[in-house]
Design a protein around this nucleic acid. Structure first.
Lengths: 103, 103
DNA sequence: TGTTAATATGAACACTTATTCATACATTTG
DNA sequence: CAAATGTATGAATAAGTGTTCATATTAACA
């Protein structure tokens, strides 16, 4: 037993963190986060036009992100508006932008 | 064309960010980051003992993380010591810890 | 009410990633 | 030098994700 070594985070927290990171670890989903960080709420249509993502695929992404607690949605007429539920998530983008990893 | 809508990050940056996030979006790899944040350098053996991860699997994880620019390694005798190359990465853990997502 | 527009859903398939196992390689030690 | 220790590698397979396509659902509108 290496007594001097610290180990802070427990299994459960790690699982949760990995779960959230996985949800966000996709170019399109990152773009959605970025977009909803700058624009309080947007319809599926608007997001699709801006990001040039096909309707069904986008819907799948949004559904996933909502399911995992990153987004909320409100229906208005025939449109559905999505917004960021988790305000901390955009910070991930900042961290990443500063960092200087290979590739 | 929705003129009022901003869209900040370009495709290339998104790909890179997603790439880094994917690298880190795994419980064991997060644990490694956390561990190496608290302990400047550790051997494969030490990491394996602390995290209770099988040798080969751990080696695969470490190799991936090194390849993707998150870790560096130095061989000393029969041991190989890994350390964090990317100091910003642990910040991701902080962000995540504050956030309050489902599940 | 029939048509169009906005969004969601589910199944199928393609891709990627994780894990295991056997084995290789290098270094130390008896 | 033979055995033991620490680490890496590669192939095989398992498990998880992304994408597409066809179709469903709901609301608006002529």
């Amino acid at each position: 037993m290496t007594a001097t070594v610290e180990y802070k985070i427990n299994r459960e927290k790690l699982e949760k963190a990995a779960y959230i990171l996985r949800t966000v670890a996709h170019p399109t989903r990152l773009a959605i986060v970025d977009l909803l960080n700058l624009n309080a709420r947007l319809s599926v249509n608007e997001i699709g036009e801006i990001l040039k993502v096909e309707q069904s695929l986008l819907s799948h992404h949004l559904t996933t992100m909502k399911l995992k607690g990153l987004l909320r949605s409100e229906k208005e007429g025939q449109s559905v508006f999505y917004s960021l539920k988790e305000k901390d998530i955009p910070k991930l983008l900042e961290c990443i932008e500063h960092c200087d990893c290979n590739m």
